[in-house]
Design a protein around this nucleic acid. Structure first.
Lengths: 187, 187
DNA sequence: CAAAATACATGACCGTCATCATGAATAAAC
DNA sequence: GTTTATTCATGATGACGGTCATGTATTTTG
């Protein structure tokens, strides 16, 4: 049963959207293609009409996320919210895709496609640039340095807070790093 | 073919050791029990004489790592070396187990055993305490705060550097966070 | 030294999952 | 309107991996 071209495009983006959300929630190995397709409202067999393989899907998702990231220039405030809010730490579907997805292919990155690795690295570069622009008061060279230092702290805090079983400890880590950033940046 | 009790104890610790190294390298899902047992010099069937399941092995490894962490009080210098050295970033078998293993069960932590989660959380607490002791010049309350801020930055830097495909970018992130920490701590 | 206990090797089982082959049904092309 | 192209559903396939049953050899015990 063939569908219209518009319908097919919508199907494809539904697959992307569902996979993006589910991968972020459960990791690449924690989600099956059948689950993704079911969430997209299709059956598993239709997958290979849109993507060559699961690895292809992963790479395209990483590229898609990177593209979308380029389209906005958030403030430091919204950066902090998107990383260090308790809600982001609690809900795996929210938040930046880099700390959420990089770990998923981090340990054994080698067995993933070069496209996926390249897309993730590009996301890191874009994020450093974006965050650097959020420090307008600094000199250009110092903008980049401040962005790296600040972002590393945010990523680490989010990772540790997510890993923590104790909500109090998680909140402490998030809020402590947050005040460290705002006090450091205004100093 | 039964082996001596001493031999069995050595076999068990060889399994632990091999699994620890391989999990850190490839993630929990990226290593099969057969591979672990082969690396330990045994066949896959012998596994269940030592552990109840793969989840049991994971939990015991996390507990084992946490115990070993308690036994030393490194200086800030050695902390920096064990996180922000290029070698640590390049060689997946080196470095602290928390940023290496937390991501592996981070996204879908829920489907892991409570024991594993608890052991990892306890590791985080121990590490904060250890790192706080490396700031002797600060007041006790400030020690903990400084430890959290510093450690979060180290963890984030390591994660981003490992995720990066470009060695130059990785080195930049590591060294930038390092100078940020030493200049911040001496200020 | 005999008997019992047991650690490991071998092999099989069963479920899961990525991938592909086929067919049906409908949009697109002319 | 007829033909062609193609999107999706259904089902199968083959590999992989965690788990377990059985047998064997050796240690331990008395």
């Amino acid at each position: 049963m063939k569908v219209s071209r518009a319908q097919m495009a919508e199907n494809r983006s539904r697959i992307l959207e569902a996979a993006c959300r589910m991968f972020q929630q459960k990791g690449f190995d924690g989600v099956t293609l059948a689950e993704v397709m079911k969430a997209a409202g299709l059956t598993h067999g239709a997958f290979y009409g849109h993507f060559r393989s699961k690895e292809d899907l992963i790479a395209q998702i990483l590229q898609h996320r990177c593209e979308k990231m380029r389209e906005s220039r958030p403030s430091l405030e919204s950066f902090l919210d998107s990383y260090l809010s308790p809600g982001v730490c609690t809900d795996p579907t929210r938040g930046c895709h880099i700390p959420a997805l990089a770990p998923a292919l981090g340990p054994d990155m080698v067995h993933h496609s070069p496209e996926a690795r390249a897309a993730l690295t590009e996301s890191i570069r874009v994020q450093i640039d974006r965050l650097g622009a959020a420090f307008p008061e600094s000199a250009p060279g110092e903008q980049r340095r401040a962005a790296i230092r600040t972002w590393a702290a945010m990523v680490g805090a989010l990772l540790l807070a997510k890993a923590s079983d104790d909500p109090d400890l998680a909140t402490e880590i998030l809020s402590e790093v947050r005040v460290g950033i705002v006090s450091g940046s205004t100093a």
